[in-house]
Amino acid sequence: MIEQAPGERRARSAYVAAAGVFAVGMAGTTLPTPLYGLYREEIGFSELVVTVVFAVYAIGVIAALLVAGDFSDVLGRRPVLLAALGLSLLSAVCFLFQNGLPLLFAGRLLSGFSAGLLSGAATAAVLELAPSDLRARAGLAATAANMGGLGCGPLLSGVLAQYAPWPLRLPFVAHIALLLAAFAVTRALAETVALRSPRPPLRPQGMVVPPQTRAAFVPAGLAAFAGFSMLGLFTAVAPSFLALTLGEQNLAVTGLVVFSVFCASTAGQMLMGRLGVRRALPAGCLVLTAGMAVVAASLVVESLPVLVVGALAGGLGQGMSFRAGLTGVSAVAPAEHRGATISAFFVVAYVGISVPVVGVGALTLALGLRDAGVAFAMYVILVSAAVGVFLLLRPPRSE
């Protein structure tokens, strides 16, 4: 057995450390998920307001992607990562001292800015810090850090809110401690971007979809839209479904259910690597369709186990279709527009996580929570099934 030199061991562990920073930052974006019911009781607002508070986060993500999606290419990965962690820290402070809706909105907006910066900079840092022979493993590490962090946020806050004191404060104190550790780790990471002199100007990159990518972009974007709509349902409205429709009051269980969705998404993204884009994109859409049908059934029969099965199937399908769509779009995008095209793909996905969920909140006022949830599930079923059938008839030509 050949013993690795200390420098080689550090190089091989650097991308893991960057993935840990990524996960900590993303966890803060979903930390409030199990707590919305407590906020609703303390402040007093409707389910529609809950979804609007959630949608503010997506607005922040989209704004960061459109304005600063490529800033880490110019400024370096570490400065942008530190800025993203700083925004996440400010978000936690807003939630820590909230006394009404204004700070909730501010906290969610700052959290969105943080996630928008992290999405590109942290993914690039994880890949670039990995030795060339571990690049494939680093890609999985970035995926796991992104979705795993999103899943760990509700799990952490749900457990602390259920079993520890100060349910609306302690989760954010814990996250601030994790962020401080992430700051220290980030400062120790090597910079992977060779800075140019004079420095190019920082300009908003906007949303670019080159004509030659549109045939792949449109179905992939619609699949991402449907998949992220499902994620929005579970991170914004599912706690209310669990408490008010299914009678589950344990916040740790709520966090665990949301955690399971993101774990399944991570598994789906890993599975896509074996299936390839041509099979994984339509298959993911159809698995998502089946999962949402089970979710709708769980609301009709008011069964938590059935909801969990639907969550796992929906998350698996979302992960498969999302990674397949992203891989396919990246493959056909011209090099000079690849970053902007990928950012446009994420913009479509985050529109999917916000606008339809606000629609669910509005429907609850007219139909009630359960019927609004069933109607939303039917909408996702229609979109994902249509895209899946289209892609079966016309497979993507990205491989």
Rank of each mutant, 00 (worst) to 15 (best):
G339T: 13
A138F: 11
F22M: 12
P79L: 03
V351D: 01
G86A: 09
E128R: 05
R203Y: 02
A375I: 05
I176W: 09
V16F: 15
A280G: 04
V358R: 06
A267W: 00
R278K: 10
G221Q: 02
A164E: 06
V49P: 02
L48K: 11
S91Q: 07
R12F: 04
P282L: 09
A5W: 11
Y57E: 05
M207S: 15
E47R: 04
E128W: 03
D371V: 08
P165R: 13
G268A: 08
A145F: 07
T33Y: 01
R199Y: 02
R187M: 12
A144R: 05
F183Q: 06
A283M: 05
V261G: 02
L140R: 02
L65V: 13
S132H: 04
A349I: 08
A252N: 10
L31A: 14
G373N: 10
D371N: 04
G276Y: 06
L170K: 00
L110D: 00
A181Y: 10
A293F: 15
L38S: 04
G227W: 03
I62N: 02
L89C: 13
Q212P: 00
S384L: 01
A190N: 11
V351A: 12
A226S: 09
V237K: 06
A372S: 13
V93F: 05
R338P: 00
L365G: 10
V380K: 08
V355D: 07
T235S: 14
F345P: 09
S240Y: 10
R323C: 09
L160K: 13
A324V: 00
A14S: 14
A11K: 13
F376I: 09
Y36I: 03
L103Y: 03
V21E: 10
R370Y: 13
V389K: 11
D133N: 14
A194S: 14
G352Q: 02
L326H: 00
A340R: 15
A264L: 04
A142C: 03
L110I: 05
A366P: 06
Q205M: 14
S354C: 08
E42R: 15
F225G: 08
Y15Q: 07
L87T: 01
T245F: 11
R214I: 01
L65I: 12
P102E: 14
V300H: 07
V209R: 12
A386P: 00
S398H: 04
R108E: 05
V218K: 01
L109S: 09
L189G: 14
F71C: 06
L117A: 13
A125Q: 13
V173T: 11
S114R: 05
L316W: 03
R137G: 15
A115F: 09
D73S: 03
L96W: 08
V351Q: 01
L168C: 01
A362M: 07
V21W: 04
L288R: 07
V53P: 09
A264H: 12
L391G: 01
F183H: 02
A124E: 01
V355P: 10
L160N: 12
G247Y: 07
P32N: 10
L195K: 05
T254I: 10
G221K: 10
G158Y: 12
V383S: 02
R169Q: 10
A11I: 11
L180T: 10
S330G: 11
F228L: 15
E302V: 14
P6T: 01
L117K: 07
I381D: 04
T289F: 10
A11E: 14
A188V: 07
A377N: 11
P200F: 00
L195P: 00
A68L: 04
V308I: 14
H337C: 04
